[in-house]
């Protein structure tokens, strides 16, 4: 199915994953994943706990060893495409008591572009401030990061990714345990990114909001269950395949309105 898209589309897709498998202690965490993400989509990656969503992102970004498979970003391997890729790790992955300020964390997004010896200067500072402004955090620039709320931490991470000015973004559960304001801010940023032609992959937990926020979705449970435009892919049948019987009590208000399909 994915190969068909290729033949009609001249431009390489934003992300092309081929036969990607990752194993922990020889137990598959993700299994033979083929994925084709066209440029300019907002894609949710959903699946139950332990389905390998974060593992998938980390494997694509070369952060953990793969057992097999390849990933191409705009037709290039990760080493060549590094400057095209932005990453928002899970908020809990760092020590928020680290002695540093919000502005400093955001500036870290530019470290990759600075060479050895070079320190971030005025120009980097301004870029970082601009990114902070985009997530409504400009007032917090000099705040120590331990004084931030969970949502503010998330927005700081988001700003750090924005400052990278990447083409394709990977976000690991940015919506996990954030307040409504932050959720709205993140959604606005996501839409803005899409308007600017960026591609965004988001590990997402809240099935209720998938249809509102994302135009593309990948259902993952160790294997790819389905992937494609949200309307066609986010069906109750696919959800059942992904979550098993558990989806039944997930959809108090029905995660998707199936009447039309």
């Amino acid at each position: 199915m994915s190969k068909q898209l290729d033949s009609t589309d001249k431009k390489p897709p934003a992300l092309l994953v081929d036969d990607l498998t990752v194993a922990y202690n020889s137990k598959p965490a993700i299994w033979d994943i083929d994925l084709n993400v066209p440029e300019g989509v907002l894609m949710a990656i959903v699946g139950p706990n332990g389905a390998g969503k974060s593992t998938f992102i980390k494997a694509v970004l070369n952060l953990i060893p793969r057992a097999a498979g390849t990933a191409l970003f705009y037709g290039q391997a990760y080493e060549q495409a590094r400057s095209l890729v932005g990453y928002v790790p899970q908020r809990g992955s760092v020590d928020w008591d680290f002695p540093t300020s919000v502005l400093d964390v955001v500036t870290m997004g530019l470290y990759g572009k600075l060479g050895w010896f070079r320190r971030p200067g005025r120009q980097e500072r301004e870029l970082a401030l601009h990114a902070l402004d985009q997530v409504s955090m400009a007032d917090f620039a000099n705040r120590q990061i331990s004084q931030l709320s969970g949502g503010q931490q998330q927005r700081t991470f988001l700003a750090r990714a924005l400052v990278q000015d990447a083409q394709i973004y990977f976000m690991d559960e940015p919506f996990a345990a954030v307040d409504a304001v932050t959720e709205r801010a993140i959604v606005n940023i996501l839409r803005e990114l899409r308007e600017r032609g960026k591609t965004v992959l988001v590990v997402h937990h809240d099935l209720q909001t998938v249809k509102d926020y994302f135009d593309w979705v990948t259902l993952l449970n160790v294997e790819v269950i389905a992937s494609g435009p949200t309307e066609a892919t986010f069906t109750s049948e696919n959800l059942r395949k992904t979550y098993g019987g558990r989806v039944a009590f997930l959809d108090g208000g029905a995660p998707v309105n199936m009447a039309g399909d």
Binding site: K58, L61, N62, L63, E79, R82, V85, Y87, P89, S93, V94, D95, F98, T100, V105, M108, G109, Y111, G112, L114, W116, F117, R119, P120, R160, Q164, F170
Partner: peptide, 22 residues
Amino acid sequence: IVFWKEFKLVTFDPEFAGANGF
């Protein structure tokens, strides 16, 4: 001093550092 920003980044957020090619 030479690797100041690298040490800082790797200590604070090794995952992000890895994704940035450090």
